[in-house]
Nucleic acid binder design. Structure first.
Lengths: 344, 344
DNA sequence: ATATAATACTAAAACGTTTTAGCTTAAAAG
DNA sequence: CTTTTAAGCTAAAACGTTTTAGTATTATAT
């Protein structure tokens, strides 16, 4: 025990105080009094002492014995990204409600970091994991699944893997946005996305492409993908090209960071929105409301996504990984502001 | 052990494989071979097996025995606030470098939550705590200090308590901003801050007041404090009053959230910056660069503050709380954009 | 009366470590 | 040759739980 915890009351102390065995106390504490037919009067006396002595079980010991730590491991790509910090906050809240605490790490979109974090979090005793998987992490997730480690993917998933997730309907998200832009009369609509093979990116791209095709705008399809490492300069290059060379009429950004870098570039270029080019952003940002022209955006149900992930995970932790997998696909919402209106 | 961890190699397995006692293995692993005069050849054989069998110590067991968890507890007021999520990211990075993992919670500026979180985090085995303290938490921190729980306060501190912290020089921050506004020729400068008795708030207020007084602008001092619970509407009310009633020439926001709400209000009111009113914000935000008029702001050395906090904490964990306390006060930087220029 | 069953409880092992105290054996000292 | 010292190692306790396999004791059935 650390010196600053010396004072803690143990189950032994309670047992001694009541004059019974530690077994008895343990059983009562864990609500197994009936099951082990402990006399009601005895159970009452034990509980009273527990309250009186302010006993709380030592989770470390409990975990060592084979129980749980009530610790949820969370791996996001970057906790300082507002989208993920929002997710984290909701996960934290829901976890707390269910008596769990969150232990976290950021992978920076690198599967090697993801693996390291998984090892660390499990070694620290995490009862289960909520993971934002990244490119190259499929094998890792497969292994977790085989090991029956309670795991829920969030934000992105592997469709060919039978592993639970809680994600946005990403295809629907860009369908909504693209349809809206087409309805507004824009034809040359371009999409900017990350260079990634993950489901969220691919689905957002295909939602856009499918909608363009359906509207007979196949020839106008224009997708540019930028790197994670050089995002800002890649976005700048792409946006300039969209505007100056491709004569794009509307830009669809498929991520909060892409939106923000894009808007920064448009501002620097002194491009007028929506007169010179229309814009739809992704996720939420204070910037969208405060930009010179308020920006339309696709809103994810962050609360639901995060809460669902926790609920699925806790169910798995409690009822075993063997149970059927849960795939939660949640609805996006298109918030229309002036930036995407034809006559804004 | 959880079923998904069944495979793990224990010290016993290694001992058996080498044909020695667990004691021997433990000593070698913990670098005490020399001290306990284990034969070099033996130590070599053990280490070889450890590598071969890919053994890693079970941290839960190690902690139970009285060691450490390599877990740092972090309590911020709200992980989804960009300032704190940035802080958290840096803390995470530095902690990882030093072989620690972060376990966190948000207090929502409520000392009751803070106390609950402290209990939970310590019960989960945190080796030490990094805390953003809030109003009413002074007694709690005092108790931590008396118990010798390794603790570092961050962002705010209690000056009359001999407890380590890593904070901005808050007084200097508003001195810098106020001086700048005065130099630009503004006289009626108003400050908006949170309703709080915490050091960061008080120092920011006094930095402003001291500078106003020194410039002979005592009569122009105008401070409004808003609640944590109703921040947005309070800010809106205050800003309207500053503009319409007080004829304020420049507004100094003392926090990132206050800045953002304030700018939102100014935009809604269609107030022109800096022509109608000058503005200086606090902390960093994408909004500052993307607002119609780029906004000047006081920048905190987030990286330094966070890294320093971790370093102080880890030193405490390793060398005992008894060591002298470290008080880190870091320098703010004023970033000047158009919003605070007289002839913007 | 005796076997059986139910009630109310407990001893002890186990989880994976670290550490204290002590045990051999061999070398050095007397 | 004994005794002391040193070298090299180990047995066992301890950390705080949970759980398995009991043990008494009393009640019920035969």
């Amino acid at each position: 025990m650390k010196d600053f915890e010396k004072k803690k009351v143990s189950i032994k102390d309670v047992a001694k105080a009541v004059g019974v065995s530690t077994t008895l106390v343990s059983l009562v504490i864990n609500g197994k009094a009936k099951q082990y037919r402990i006399a009601d009067e005895m159970a009452g006396r034990v509980m009273a002492k527990v309250k009186e002595m302010n006993y709380t079980p030592n989770l470390i010991a409990r975990n060592l014995r084979g129980g749980k730590t009530q610790l949820i491991g969370l791996i996001v790509t970057d906790i300082s990204n507002p989208f993920f910090s929002m997710i984290s906050r909701v996960i934290e809240n829901r976890a707390n409600e269910l008596n769990y605490t969150v232990i976290f790490g950021s992978s920076d979109e690198k599967y090697t970091n993801t693996q390291k974090l998984i090892d660390v979090l499990l070694n620290k005793g995490a009862d289960g994991l909520i993971i934002v998987p990244c490119d190259g992490s499929e094998k890792i997730m497969e292994r977790l699944h085989l090991n029956k480690t309670p795991t829920v993917l969030i934000d992105r998933c592997f469709k060919n893997l039978d592993i639970s997730f809680s994600c946005l309907d990403n295809h629907r998200a860009t369908v909504l946005a693209t349809q809206h832009l087409i309805e507004q009369g824009f034809r040359k609509i371009s999409l900017i996305a990350y260079q990634s093979q993950m489901s969220n990116v691919l689905d957002r791209i295909s939602g856009y492409k499918d909608t363009m095709r359906k509207a007979g705008l196949e020839k106008q399809i224009n997708v540019k993908q930028v790197s994670f490492s050089n995002t800002k300069s890649d976005v700048f290059g792409t946006v300039k090209r969209f505007i100056e060379k491709d004569k794009t009429e509307a830009i669809l950004f498929s991520t909060n960071m892409l939106s923000i870098h894009g808007l920064t570039c448009l501002k620097e270029m002194n491009v007028k929105i929506p007169d010179d080019v229309a814009v739809v952003g992704f996720d939420e940002s204070d910037v969208f409301d405060l930009y010179e022209c308020p920006v339309s955006y696709i809103k994810q149900p962050v609360e639901q996504i995060a809460k669902t992930a926790v609920d699925i995970l806790v169910d798995k932790i409690k009822n075993g990984e063997s149970a059927k997998q849960s795939m939660a696909v949640l609805e996006p919402e298109l918030i229309v502001k002036r930036s995407s209106l034809r006559n804004g």
